[in-house]
Nucleic acid binder design. Structure first.
Lengths: 350, 350
DNA sequence: CTGAAAGCGCTAACAA
DNA sequence: TTGTTAGCGCTTTCAG
């Protein structure tokens, strides 16, 4: 059923039908009602392409994310999707598998498909490529970058501060030698965690040898392997107790922490008495680990919601006066549970 | 940049440009190359809407899912998305929040947007509504239905068999009284699990009172609350040990099992000595629980991959001769770990 | 308040 | 091999 047939059925011209769809105030009430009834009866919906050809708008956004697994990503995605749905938009899900090549291909697809806006989660794109997106004049917002891109709207988390709090907590719990398992985005996100970690250790006079810092895959397996290596590395020669030189492990991701916990247990060690463990993210399961994982909560869903709101503000923005880029920095929150051995202050801090 | 401008730059008609795009074999090599060079230079891409208006194809599919959280859903989604990407398609993610109203709205959106096909995960739609989708002549495949819809392509899991294996295992481990925590899709999916469970109990002469069967939200919280109630219900009057009449809990979902484990521990009970616990799904974390969770593995990713393949077969199918609906039934796999107290056969069964 | 007709960018049938 | 032109379904300007 197309507009012509509706027009014929109503005994009017296509222009009039189009008007009741787009400018109903310019149609005589009687005609309008008659046409509306027919539209309803026939379940007529304007052809998407024809409308697009005229309006160049799709009520569609693209969401590019690193993986489809991983609760943190999906919570952010859920936040985005919720806002989009409320606004009447529908969302393309683009799983780039943390591969910049795939990310680019997807963005090409999105632009070809005339999405009204794009959200880039933990993007891997170079600045040159971003410049190209800018040229396409399509609104985009970045979520989860850690290095600020001043030219782009973004939502980030103050990971450095989170790491500072956590490291301070670890020190306060009496841990002398703390190892760190760094995973996550290849280049940037761990940087600030590591920075916060180092600063606090330095300030509190704890030693930090290079071998205490370990880079791992951001996954349960990565955490397992990394912890095993770290423990092996931190064992005195001839000691029968593995990891005797290590008091605690700070994992830059809860997922890594899960794997590390498994590894510690596999070594016959107890958490937190032999080795304490701290995570980052506060994934849903962290509260069910044994012992329950002390971690830094990141407000994932909120990141998605804020990101989407900024995007829709841009989309609806009158193109004449563009506001300068917005940068939202969200705070983390300590979740002190049992895995770090803090005796008194179990509960929530900060 | 549009086709007209390219044509002018190349000194040819738009038809010729269109030809090098769609039927390059019908263009003289020299002209073709010249035009291609210009297309590349100008980074010209045909207008999506104009093309759509002619082809009525979008290289786009829609994926409707119950939630964006929950590793099982996202694994299925990941499988779909992978196949779609390989085929050059891009996927709309429609989170219906397990609400049939939202599901319908999304499907309307998808149809309006002229997607080439739709995948419905754990759909809540009535048969009448499905008939309406049929009228729109848009290919759709169902993933995760349990009641077979003979008219529709579908990928399902043989949950009944999985439940049979698990229940048999529980019995074999020596558990007399087994409670079951039913969650998941409101109406259908648990049905066959429950059926398998009942059959085995009956066959092995175990008792099964109504109070051993408990319906819960399909979530960690649901599992926690449900287990608490179940335990309370199954405690002898005057007993100081809660749940003394209960030997094991079968959760129809790993998520429910997680919550239940937490509840059991909170009661001061040990797993599996006081109460054993079994799950269903084999989510990623089940291997990290303490004790490690014995569960029935569902091949989630595969469900997505198969579903997508069927869909693309349909999409590419010559409309003349339609093949009859395909129904793929995937098998589950036992993952015997520690939470059920089986002493000898730790490892994999079946 | 309504209709005729041009145009959005592209494809393909038909002619040359 | 190439060009001309009629659509695809809709919106909107311009007349009436």
């Amino acid at each position: 059923m197309n507009i012509k047939q509706i027009a014929k059925k109503a005994g009017v011209s296509v222009a009039t039908v189009s008007r009741v769809l787009n400018h109903p105030e310019n149609v005589a009430p009687a005609t309008k009602e008659r046409i509306q009834k027919i539209i309803e009866q026939e379940e007529y919906t304007p052809n998407w392409f024809a409308q697009g050809l005229n309006f160049n708008k799709t009520k569609t956004i693209g969401l590019v994310l690193p993986y489809t697994i991983g609760s943190s990503y999906m919570e952010i995605a859920g936040g985005v999707e919720e806002v989009a749905r409320q606004k009447g938009y529908i969302t393309f899900m683009c799983n780039m598998e943390r591969n910049p090549q795939i990310e680019k291909e997807y963005i090409d697809h999105l632009i070809t498909r005339k999405v009204d806006g794009i959200i880039l989660m933990y993007s891997l794109l170079s600045d040159e490529y971003m410049a190209w997106i800018r040229d396409e004049k399509i609104p985009a917002v970045m979520i989860g970058e850690n290095e600020l891109r001043p030219d782009w709207d973004s939502v980030m988390v103050d990971c450095r501060e989170g790491a500072v709090h956590m490291t301070a907590h670890l020190v306060e719990c009496g841990h002398e030698t703390i190892g760190i398992l760094c995973g996550r985005t290849p280049e940037n996100e761990i940087k600030s965690i590591l920075q916060g970690f180092k600063n606090v250790l330095k300030a509190s006079g704890k030693k930090l040898q290079p071998k205490q810092i370990y880079e791992v895959e951001n996954s349960i397996e990565g955490g397992y392997i990394g912890a095993k290596k770290l423990i092996a590395e931190m064992t005195s020669e001839g000691s029968e107790k593995p990891g005797d030189q290590l008091d605690a492990i700070f994992a830059t991701t809860d997922e890594i922490a899960y794997g590390a916990m498994d590894a510690i247990k596999d070594c016959g060690l107890s958490i937190p008495d032999d080795i304490a463990i701290a995570g980052f993210g506060n994934y849903k399961m962290s509260n069910l680990m044994e012992p329950k994982l002390t971690t830094v909560e990141e407000p994932y869903r909120l990141m998605g919601i804020y990101g989407a709101r900024i995007l829709f503000d841009r989309i609806e923005e009158k193109s004449e006066k563009k506001e300068p880029p917005k940068h939202i920095i969200l705070k983390t929150k300590m979740r002190v549970r049992k895995s770090c051995g803090h005796k008194e202050r179990i509960g929530e801090m900060f």
